[in-house]
Design a binder for these strands. Structure first.
Lengths: 243, 243
DNA sequence: CCTCGATTCCGTACGATGTACGAGAATAGG
DNA sequence: CCTATTCTCGTACATCGTACGGAATCGAGG
C-alpha cells in the first residue's frame, strides 16, 4: 500500500480528503488503513450489493469496531466516494493513444462500461452523490483530456465531453444491470410483460401495441451501447459553432 | 379526482398497482386517496428534497396515521413510483405533431427536462429504483412512439430511443441540479475550485492545467443540453444498419 | 334490528441504520 | 515519568421502514 493515507487525513472538503497524507508523528498508531477499509467496502458491494455496505458490516469485515471507521472517513457518503475512486484505479491511465481521438474516446467509454459491469453498484453511486474527483478519477480524466487534444475543442467543451460521456455510460450500464436483474427474477419480468400486454390491448395505446406486436430483431445491450456511443462521439463538432 | 384509485388496489406487481381501481364494496370507506397521498409526497419532495419524504412526514401532511399509508401503497418504493407517475401527468400527451420526427423528439426531450427541473428529485428516483411505467408515463411513451412513426425505426429500436432519451435527460438534469446546488453553497464550490487548482499545479496533470487556464467561453446548462440532444437525435439512423 | 365478514385506521413496537459522546489505550516528546 | 496527542470502540440515541393487532366502520344476510 503506497501512499495509503491513514486516519487524520479525513475532512469534509476535497482538499483534506484527497490531498495530504500528512504524517502526524504522535499518538497511537493506526491499526487499519483507509485503503483496507475501502477495499472491504468494495468487496461487500461487489458480493452483496450496495445495501450490504453498512458501517457495521464494513467494520466487521476489517475486524474493527464500528466507530473506528470514523477515524478514516468522516461519514458514510465519504466512504462511498472513496469506493468510487478505489475502483477508478482499475482504469488504465497510461499506454499509447492511437491519435484518432474519436476512436480513443470510444475505447475509453468501453473501458468505463466494463468497469461498471464489474462493479454494478457504481452507476448508482456515481449518480446519487455529488462527488469530487479523487486521484484515480483525475488520472483518468487527465488521459481523456489528452486524447481530446487533437479534437480542437476548447477547455470547457472538453470537460463537458468527459462529464457527458461518463454520465452516458453510467446511465446505460445502470439500465443494463437493472434489466439483467429483472430477467433473473422469474415472475417479475413475466408480470411486467403481462402488464404491458394488457395495456397494449386496451385500445388506447395503438402505437405501443404496434411496437409490441412487431418488435423487430432484439438488440443486445452491448450493441445498443456501441451504437449510441458512436452517435454521441461521431456527432462531436470540432468547429466552435455547435448548434 | 377522477379515477383516483383508493386503497386495496395496491399490490407488488404492476398489474395490481396500476390497472384495477376495483371497487371493494364492503368494509370501511377510505378516508384518503392514493392521489392525495402521492400529491403530498410530491409537494414535500419539491419543497424540501427527497430526504424529507418519509412515511411519517407524508402521513402528517395528509393528516393520517403513519400506518394508514400502507393501505394505499405496499411500501415506500411503491410510493416513489407513484410520485414519478404523478408528475409524469404534467407532460402533454395530446396536440399536433409537426411531422418532423426529429424536431418532435427534441421538443419532447425539452419538455422532460423542464419537468425534471420543476421536480429536481425526479432524476434520482428515475435512476435508482427499477420502475414500471404507470399510466401517465405510458401516455407519454405512446406519444413518443407516435412521433417516431415516420422515422422508419422498428419496434425495438423505438423503445430503445425512448429509454435512451429519458436516461439522457435524467442524467443531464441530475448533473445540472447537483452543480446548481454546489454553486448555492458558498464554500463548497470554492473548496472544490481550490482543490482542482492545487491538483493542476502539481505538475502531473498538464492537460487539466491547460484546460483550467484556458477554459474558453463558459457554457450554459441549457446550451449544453440542447447541443448533446441534437447530436443524439440527429445521429439516429433511419436505415437498419446502424454502425 | 343485530351479526358477520371485510376493510380501513392507527398506536405501539421492533430491528436496522448512521453517528455523537466519551472513556480508555497506545504512542512520542519533554 | 508525565503529558499531549491520536486512535479505538462500547454505549446510546434519533430516525427510519414497517410488522402486528385491536378498534372502528362499512355492506350484506338473517
Amino acid at each position: 500500500m503506497p501512499q495509503d493515507g491513514g486516519p487524520g487525513t479525513a475532512g469534509v472538503d476535497p482538499e483534506q480528503l484527497w490531498l495530504p497524507p500528512t504524517e502526524p508523528r504522535k499518538g497511537r498508531r493506526p491499526s487499519f488503513s483507509r485503503a483496507a477499509i475501502t477495499a472491504a467496502a468494495v468487496a461487500l458491494a461487489d458480493a452483496e450489493g450496495l445495501d450490504a455496505v453498512t458501517m457495521r458490516r464494513v467494520a466487521a469485515q476489517v475486524g474493527a469496531g464500528v466507530m473506528s471507521l470514523y477515524s478514516y472517513a468522516p461519514d458514510k457518503e465519504t466512504l462511498l466516494e472513496l469506493m468510487v475512486d478505489h475502483v477508478s484505479g482499475e482504469l488504465p491511465t497510461t499506454g499509447p493513444l492511437t491519435g484518432d481521438w474519436r476512436a480513443d474516446l470510444k475505447a475509453m467509454a468501453h473501458l468505463q462500461r466494463a468497469l461498471m459491469l464489474r462493479h454494478p453498484w457504481l452507476p448508482a453511486v456515481l449518480m446519487s452523490t455529488r462527488r469530487t474527483l479523487g486521484p484515480s478519477a483525475l488520472a483518468f480524466l487527465e488521459r481523456v483530456l489528452a486524447a481530446l487534444r487533437p479534437s480542437g475543442l476548447d477547455g470547457a467543451a472538453r470537460l463537458e465531453v468527459f462529464a457527458q460521456l461518463t454520465g452516458f455510460v453510467a446511465g446505460h450500464v445502470g439500465y443494463e444491470v437493472a434489466q439483467a436483474a429483472a430477467v433473473r427474477s422469474p415472475d417479475r419480468g413475466a408480470a411486467e410483460a403481462r402488464y404491458l400486454a394488457a395495456v397494449a390491448a386496451d385500445g388506447r395505446h395503438p402505437e405501443l401495441a404496434a411496437v409490441l406486436s412487431a418488435p423487430g430483431r432484439p438488440l443486445t445491450p452491448e450493441a445498443t451501447f456501441t451504437r449510441f456511443l458512436n452517435r454521441l462521439v461521431d456527432g462531436l463538432d470540432t468547429d466552435g459553432r455547435g448548434y
